[in-house]
């Protein structure tokens, strides 16, 4: 009977390069499909709000600036988002995508997590509306 079955493997490991990725000194490129922070392209959005309806975590708000002109601001709550990509699936106009780069999202302050997407002038129009930091609205 052997005394230890893992000895060989352990000694092999000793003389091998460790399996460790030394993040943050080196960043390995993230996979193409990685589901990171949400991105919104206002050009094609029709304001149908299916993404808002389907979001299981109430992470998306579609704020109207001018409904007739199809000008909206998408207020996205990174802290609520569960990165499930249902909104991307639901969007018929392919306005939404999940970035595969933006996954280092940690912050010291929750304010940083509320992101407004849209044309600059539209966001300015909404400035008086402060971002809500409360719990997600009740369904």
């Amino acid at each position: 009977m052997r005394i230890s079955t893992i000895l060989g493997m352990a000694l092999q490991s000793l003389f091998r390069v460790p399996a460790t990725r030394s993040y943050p000194q080196e960043r390995t490129p993230s996979p193409e499909r990685l589901r990171g922070q949400l991105r919104w392209n206002p050009e094609k959005c029709t304001g149908c709000a299916v993404c808002v309806k389907d979001c299981p975590a109430v992470a998306i708000e579609l704020l109207e600036v001018d409904k007739a002109a199809k000008r909206f601001v998408l207020r996205y709550h990174t802290d609520r988002c569960i990165f499930c990509s249902q909104c991307v699936q639901s969007c018929r106009f392919k306005c939404l995508s999940l970035s595969n780069e933006a996954w280092e999202l940690a912050a010291l302050d929750k304010q940083a997590f509320t992101v407004d997407y849209g044309r600059d002038e539209d966001i300015h129009a909404l400035v008086e509306k402060p971002a809500s930091t409360d719990d997600p609205p009740r369904l």
Partner: peptide, 9 residues
């Protein structure tokens, strides 16, 4: 050494 035996840094 323990870490290296366990294949980590």
């Amino acid at each position: 050494l323990l870490a290296r035996l366990q294949n980590r840094v």
